[in-house]
Amino acid sequence: MLEISELQRDYITEILNISMGSAASVLSEMVNEAVSLSIPEIDFLPRCDAAHKFDQINTVKMSGVTQRMSGAISGDALLIFPEEKTLTIVRALLGDTVPVESLTEMEQEAMCEIGNIILNSVVSSVADILKREIVSSLPHFIKGTGKEVFSVESNNHDDLVMFLKVDFGLESQSINGYVTLMLNVDSLHDFLSQLDAQINAI
């Protein structure tokens, strides 16, 4: 079982807090209103446990965006929202410029754009901390239960999921969003070693 020290957890939370803050700033410009963010809650779980836990706390279907990471770390980055909220997000993004009947067909494209911004912000922050390059694939739109969403893009069920829960709030509504990084065990150990080196250098 992977042990995460209090300082490692603190540092990871802070890295993700900064990256989500930066992503929220861009999102705020896109939707033209203030975006509030909760403190990130972080958990580390095997991929299959994460999918199970996800289905326990979310009875509705989810949709979101995934990007494959390679380079300094290997794995998948996912941004997930309750499916029922995606049209709200798309509406916030596109405003009244698109008629209601066209929203659904714009859903994938708009979600990919939001996912691209948020996931790239998270991945870039991790890469900056590691001082190494992480390459992200183009975003893919996904839909399904936790089990379906978490098995996307990989058959490696031994991967560990760095599970980050952040509540997004627009002025009008609150939206629970999840960002997860699914890393293979070697990548995660490498990541934690880099963090230790940096903490020890303070």
Partner: peptide, 9 residues
């Protein structure tokens, strides 16, 4: 000193 870098903040 914040990660909340939005214009409104």
């Amino acid at each position: 000193l914040t990660a909340n870098v939005q214009e409104s903040t």
